[in-house]
């Protein structure tokens, strides 16, 4: 029995709830790095996946508000995370027709390439807001961890997508 049969109505909200849990897990004091806590927005992988495969269940409005919530919890300028969440959604959704036919590895490489550009932009944007050149290493570590965790989270999203049995 799929989740669709068990909880027919709430399944629409499940991707958003999963994304919310990823946001909350990324702010709790748990570190992937032995020296310092690095904020790793794993939710970006969830957004990337659903923007390609199910943009109707995790739509741009939800993504925007998830970004706003992240900004509130992280105490960074309002709209900063929202901007990058929507940007990832927008780009992934724009290249949907191309990305839909890709293999698992292809999706992973595309995410790595997309995140490289987004992370660089994120760094420059943060420097612009703060008015000084910020330390680059947290951004590099953030990028590496995101790319490393990508296959695991994409596999989880694939499983969820099948279990939820959404219709295109």
């Amino acid at each position: 029995m799929t989740i669709q049969q068990k909880i027919p109505f709430f399944r629409v909200f499940i991707p958003a709830i999963i994304a919310l849990l990823f946001i909350l897990f990324s702010v709790i004091p748990f570190s992937f790095s032995p020296t310092t806590k690095i904020y790793v927005p794993l939710v970006l992988i969830v957004i990337y996946y659903f923007a390609i495969f199910r943009p109707s269940v995790l739509n741009v409005i939800t993504v925007f508000f998830l970004g706003i919530l992240t900004d509130l919890l992280l105490s960074v300028p309002f709209g900063l995370n929202a901007f990058f969440f929507v940007l990832i959604f927008f780009i992934a959704n724009l290249g949907r027709s191309f990305l839909l036919d890709m293999s698992f590895n292809g999706l992973w490489i595309s995410f790595a390439a997309l995140m490289f550009a987004v992370d660089l932009l994120w760094y420059l944007f943060s420097c612009l807001i703060s008015g000084e050149w910020l330390f680059l290493s947290p951004f590099i570590l953030q990028y590496i961890l995101l790319v490393l965790f990508c296959p695991l989270i994409i596999s989880f999203c694939c499983w969820l997508n099948i279990k939820l049995g959404y219709k295109s």
Binding site: F64, F78, G79, L80, A82, F83, V86, L87, F90, I129
Partner: peptide, 24 residues
């Protein structure tokens, strides 16, 4: 065009957010 509108909204909010508005 919704994502573009939300991108603009987020940028505008960042502008307000930087000013440490008491309401925010």
């Amino acid at each position: 065009f919704a994502p573009v509108l939300f991108l603009i909204a987020a940028l505008a909010l960042t502008g307000i957010g930087v000013s440490n508005n008491p309401v925010l």
